[in-house]
Design a protein around this nucleic acid. Structure first.
Length: 554
RNA sequence: GGGCUUGUGGCCUAGUCCGGACAUGGCGUCAGCCUCCUAAGCUGAAUGUCGGGGGUUCGAAUCCCCCCAAGCCCGCCA
């Protein structure tokens, strides 16, 4: 509804002013939509913007197509406000199950996220990738796109060689109850310590990498075993976070099936390619200073080479590729895009996010300096359990556990997704453990509150009539939900949906305190209950995109 | 040294791409609200040179230039 009205008003303003860009935006408190086109016309017409705005408002208000939209000039601004029938329509749409789903679209999308090296558990930096990626994935599905989510498993990198070496030489046994990925990290950290003590080990690592590239069965099996072990732990963490991948793509497969050789062959034929002891591409024309090396002097491929093969494969099997990558991949990502273009292949769209660091500095798996996602979930869940127990001591233990679990994931995911990806952050336990305001639990709470009211209400008639300030504000916001989804996938910025959901919860809480629902009577009661149901449904749909459980009770 | 990103009240943060109406919220502080639909809630108050300086414009947090600070990258690692 909102989007159609936006386009309609835009068309009318174009017709009225003769301007192509009529500067139509959301009007904040002033209006549902507002245009500042009068400023622009002022110069051309040499008249005061306020007079022009008044003329436009006057002309448009006589147009019957405007229907239930009120137009008014406030100074130089032309403001549009949706009237009662449009607000009714918005709420009518918002109560329908699945509200916000956009019509099915063609164009298969492949979205890659997390893809952390399988040499240890996911830490609080990695899960920023997970949460951004998983939220985008959910938004794309909601917006009607066929989508596949992939985890690119780097199973033949140097780190894995080090892990494998560690398994072979250090004899570290897995401890009782130790999670797979944490065990692998322990081996990796210990192996790195050995490596530091004795640089000769580097040669052994190099040798392992040559063997795995040649497809030496024993080495490949060892690598695969180590990676599988770690991936098990990572998968459990992802599941705990409510994040889902459709497919784990193994990097080594591209070597094994010959794609890496083929891509190197194609690269060699590029005019920008150079071959000395290594194979490298000169990307100076594309604005990169350094050599982009794709084959080592010992003949092995590097990460970038395999990544080229992976993206070539994706480009041929999907219509659109999106990667979620940490800011440390900016250069390599841009080089990848540039090289794919040179090869005549489709480059991916890349969503970058800045780093999460600890108060004491940046995280490092190798140094064992990180807060794991598992530890975070454990702490937050424990706190959530205490909170639930204080509030709802009468609930059975299992139910309190289940609520605590949902609340914890909500807190973690929301805490991450609410911040713009381009902002670097410092991990903060106090904020992670805060379940008030601007938090996932806060939004869950608004949803549970709506459910509680509806449960107590029993049967009621659907009525769509809104008069109070709070009712109207809610209805206006409900109308914007589909537009919020559309904007999120257009800009690839999931935090927009986080803001949307929080604002909806804010408006609902204010409404709750000013406009009694169950205690009101007649049509007012019915229309408010209908509104509560619309809020409940829209919050549920919003939370689903955010990967947060919409609890009915908490 | 070069590149990218960020800099908004004590702290965190929206808005910046696409310039416009008193700069968005939260935390913390202070003052209120549970005989009343879940107080994980609501209301009010105080707190701002939108990093600094120039410029463009009727109008700049937003665009341009310079400078400062922080993070990241600049590997035959991934």
């Amino acid at each position: 509804m909102f989007q159609e009205k936006y386009q309609q008003i835009e068309r009318m303003l174009r017709a009225c002013t003769g301007e192509e860009d009529v500067l139509l935006t959301t009007g904040g408190d002033h209006a549902d939509l507002a245009s500042t086109v009068a400023f622009k016309l002022a110069k051309r017409e040499k008249r005061a913007p306020a007079m022009i705005a008044a003329d436009i408002a006057g002309k448009l208000s006589e147009n019957p197509d405007l229907g239930d939209i009120q137009v008014e000039a406030t100074g130089p601004y032309v403001n549009f406000r949706f009237g009662p029938s449009l607000l009714s329509e918005a709420v009518r749409e918002a109560v329908r199950p699945g509200y916000g789903s956009l019509p099915h679209r063609s164009g298969r999308v492949v979205l890659e996220h997390t893809s952390a090296n399988p040499n240890g558990p996911l830490h609080v930096g990695h899960i920023r990738n997970t949460v951004i990626g998983d939220t985008l994935a959910r938004a794309f599905r909601k917006a009607g796109y066929p989508l596949e989510v992939q985890y690119y498993l780097n199973d033949m990198g140097r780190q894995i060689a080090i892990v494998s070496w560690g398994f072979d030489h250090l004899g570290l046994a897995r401890e009782e109850g130790e999670k797979e990925d944490h065990y692998v990290a322990r081996v990796y950290i210990a192996a790195n310590r050995e490596l530091q003590k004795d640089p000769e080990i580097t040669k052994e690592i190099d040798h392992l990498m040559q063997k795995v590239e040649r497809g030496d069965a024993e080495t490949v099996a060892k690598f695969r075993k180590a990676v599988s072990l770690c991936a098990e732990g990572i998968k459990a963490t992802l599941a705990g976070l409510n994040a889902h991948h459709d497919r784990f793509v193994w990097e080594s497969d591209f070597v094994r099936i010959g794609d890496v050789d083929r891509i190197m062959e194609r690269v060699r034929r590029l005019s920008q390619a150079h071959e000395d002891e290594t194979l490298w591409v000169d990307l100076t024309e594309q604005g990169f200073e350094k050599k982009y090396i794709l084959r080592r002097s010992d003949g092995t491929s590097v990460y970038s080479t395999r990544d080229l093969a992976y993206h070539t494969w994706k480009g041929r099997n999907y219509d659109r590729m999106i990667d979620v990558l940490g800011a440390d991949h900016k250069l390599i990502g841009a080089q990848l895009q540039a090289t794919l273009k040179l090869l005549g292949e489709q480059p991916p769209e890349i969503v970058f996010f800045e780093f999460v660091s600890l108060p004491e500095g940046s995280m490092s798996t190798r140094a064992g300096k990180f807060v794991s996602a598992d530890a975070l979930m454990e702490e937050v869940t424990a706190k959530a359990f205490d909170e639930v127990t204080v509030r709802r001591p009468e609930l059975p233990l299992e139910e309190r556990r289940s609520i605590a679990n949902s609340v914890a994931i909500a807190a973690i995911r929301y805490d991450i997704v609410k911040v713009s990806p381009e902002k670097s952050t410092v991990f903060n336990w106090k904020e992670a453990l805060d379940f008030e305001r601007q938090s996932g639990p806060y939004i869950q709470y608004a949803h549970a509150r709506a459910c509680s009211i509806l449960e107590k209400a029993g049967e009621f008639e659907q009525v769509y009539r809104y008069e109070t300030e709070h009712e109207i504000a809610l209805a206006r916001h409900l109308a914007r939900f589909p537009a919020a989804i559309e904007q999120t996938i257009e800009e690839l910025r999931p935090h927009l949906l986080a803001s949307y959901a929080r604002e909806l919860a804010d408006l609902f809480n204010a409404f709750y305190h000013y406009d009694p629902v169950l205690k009101s009577e007649g049509e007012t009661r019915s229309s408010r209950l209908t509104l509560v149901d619309a809020v409940r449904n829209t919050l549920k749909e919003s939370l689903e995109i955010l990967g947060i459980d919409a609890l009915r009770s908490m």
